[in-house]
Design a protein around this nucleic acid. Sequence first.
DNA 1: ATTTGTAGTTACTAAATAGTAACCAGTATA
DNA 2: TATACTGGTTACTATTTAGTAACTACAAAT
Lengths: 110, 110
Amino acid sequence: MKDERFCNSHCPFTRAIGTIGNKWKPIIINVIGTRTIRFGQLDAIIPHITRKVLTEQLKELEEDGLLERMAYKELPPRVEYKLSEKGLAFLPILEAIKVWNLKYEVVTMP
Amino acid sequence: MKDERFCNSHCPFTRAIGTIGNKWKPIIINVIGTRTIRFGQLDAIIPHITRKVLTEQLKELEEDGLLERMAYKELPPRVEYKLSEKGLAFLPILEAIKVWNLKYEVVTMP
DNA sequence: ATTTGTAGTTACTAAATAGTAACCAGTATA
DNA sequence: TATACTGGTTACTATTTAGTAACTACAAAT
C-alpha cells in the first residue's frame, strides 16, 4: 500500500492494516500457505490476477518480510516463493477468517 | 468493495476478503469495538477519514451484516452504530492481527 | 434574523489501483 | 530459422477509490 498515513501511522494496528489490508495480499498468502511455489504457479492458481499485479504484491510482501524470494540462476529462470516465519504466523488469522465467514455469511442463491 | 470477482466468487474465503479486505473496514470495526457510537464520534476519532468515505464504508458494513444502524427521529438528527453479532465475532481476529504485528513488525526509527 | 448542531449528500477532481498488450533475455528444442 | 520456456518489465489506458468544498433539513438557542 502506498498510503503513508497508514504505513507511517503511530498506531501499530493501523500499520498492520497498511501491510495486509488489501484484497490481493490475503489471497496470495493463503494460496502459498506452507508450500514453496513458483511465480508461474501462483499466476495460474490465483483467479483473475494479472502478472503485473502479482509481481507488485509479491514485491511488497517481500519488503514487509512476509515472504522469501529465491531466484535460481538457470535458464529459463526459476523463482520460488515461500512464506517467512512472519508470513506463516499470519496463516492462522486467515483460517480464523474462514471459520468466521462460514459461520456468519448469509449466502444468497442467485 | 465493488469488485464482483471477489464478492461473487465461488470461494468463501475470497468472498470474505471481498467484504473486509480493504483498509478502512478493519479500522472502523476496531474503533467501534463493543460500544455504541455516533457518526460524528467515528468521524472525530478515526484519523484522516472523510465523512464521505466513512458514510460509504458504514453503508457497506451494514449491508454485509457486520453493523447495525439506529437512526433516531430527532432534530438535530442522531444516528448510532454498533457491531452486530457477526461484527463482534470479527473483533478477536483484529486482536490476533495486533498480536501478530506486535511480534513480527520490524520497527524502523525515522 | 443569524448562528449552531447532526448526519449526511452532491458534484467535481485527484490519486491509487488494476487491466491490456507488447516486449525482453538466453538457452533448448523442433 | 523459428518457437517455446520463465519471470518478469514497460507504456498506456481504464476503473476504483478517495479527497474537497459546498450544500441540505429542521429546530433550538443567541
